[in-house]
């Protein structure tokens, strides 16, 4: 028996003006999956996510979401105004726009915030200003906001963009834990070795789906060159694919 996919993109195309940015994409995301979309800057990854969430119009094709699908969205933390006067608690509760109009945070909301923060290991930061947190804590706060609505699927745009190695490890482990608990996750990333290679399913994307499968299947020199338009080598390290781009090798060679 096959279950209905949570997200079903069929021949989806999106444009900015007349310029196509997503071209004839076919992609299904099933319950319980952990999927990463990789591709160069400007390849249409974020546009595809926006189209799935209804924030960008679909020019051709259809996107079918499972009825009553709840999406938790985590934007790139680099887009956040960290000086905005809000505490962690206010950030998380602000998403409750439909169930409550009352401005004050209620006792039950406060408890729910503590619970979700506790799940993510930052229970003690509820009353702190978002600026006062470390990089890993900041990413967790926005993850907590997405989790607050108890979503069926978590959609994240570049969750490791602009974070240090330690924070990247924290995020990766956190997402693996959430996935293990049954949460479906769809994310975009530039980070081929630090994040993409660790995921169970990877989609190489440049306006269209170039390859779709597990990292061992899709992280090949041919697929990567087709995706990024630049030659890359793939080595194996600790049983996992390790992508080395020729630019880095050339730089090192020149240094010698």
């Amino acid at each position: 028996m096959t279950s209905t996919p949570l997200i079903d993109c069929s021949h989806v195309s999106c444009t900015y003006g007349n310029a196509p940015v997503v071209d004839d994409v076919y992609l299904q995301i099933n319950r319980g999956e952990f999927v990463g979309i990789v591709g160069p800057s400007g390849s249409g990854k974020t546009t595809l996510l926006n189209a799935i969430m209804g924030a960008h119009p679909v020019a051709h094709g259809t996107i079918t979401l499972q009825p009553n699908l709840t999406i938790g969205y985590v934007p790139q933390v680099e887009t956040v105004d960290w000086y905005f006067p809000v505490t962690v608690e206010e950030v998380i509760v602000m998403t409750r726009t439909k169930s409550s109009w009352w401005p004050r945070i209620t006792a039950s909301e406060r408890n729910a915030v503590r619970e979700v923060l506790g799940q993510l290991g930052i229970a003690d930061v509820a009353h702190r200003h978002i600026r006062e947190l470390s990089g890993g804590q900041q990413q967790r706060v926005f993850l907590a906001r997405a989790m607050f609505s108890q979503p069926d699927i978590l959609i994240m745009d570049e969750p490791t963009s602009g974070v240090d190695v330690r924070t990247r490890h924290e995020i990766l482990h956190l997402l693996a834990d959430l996935h293990e608990k049954g949460l479906t996750i769809l994310l975009t990333t530039h980070d081929l070795n630090g994040l993409a290679a660790h995921l169970p399913r990877l989609v190489c994307f440049n306006k269209k789906v170039i390859a779709d499968g597990n990292p061992r299947q899709v992280l090949t020199p041919q697929v990567l060159e087709q995706t990024y338009g630049a030659p890359m080598d793939v080595l194996e390290h600790g049983g996992m694919p390790l992508v080395v781009d020729h630019g880095r090798v050339a730089m090192r060679g020149e240094g010698k």
């Binding site: 905005f84 809000v86 602000m94 109009w101 401005p103």
Partner: peptide
């Protein structure tokens, strides 16, 4: 401001996410 507090706050702080969240 009282009735629209959460929508106003959400869209002021994070316009794009507010939009995809149904505001």
């Amino acid at each position: 401001v009282v009735l629209g507090y959460r929508r106003l706050l959400f869209s002021t702080f994070d316009r794009d996410v507010a939009q995809v969240s149904g505001v």
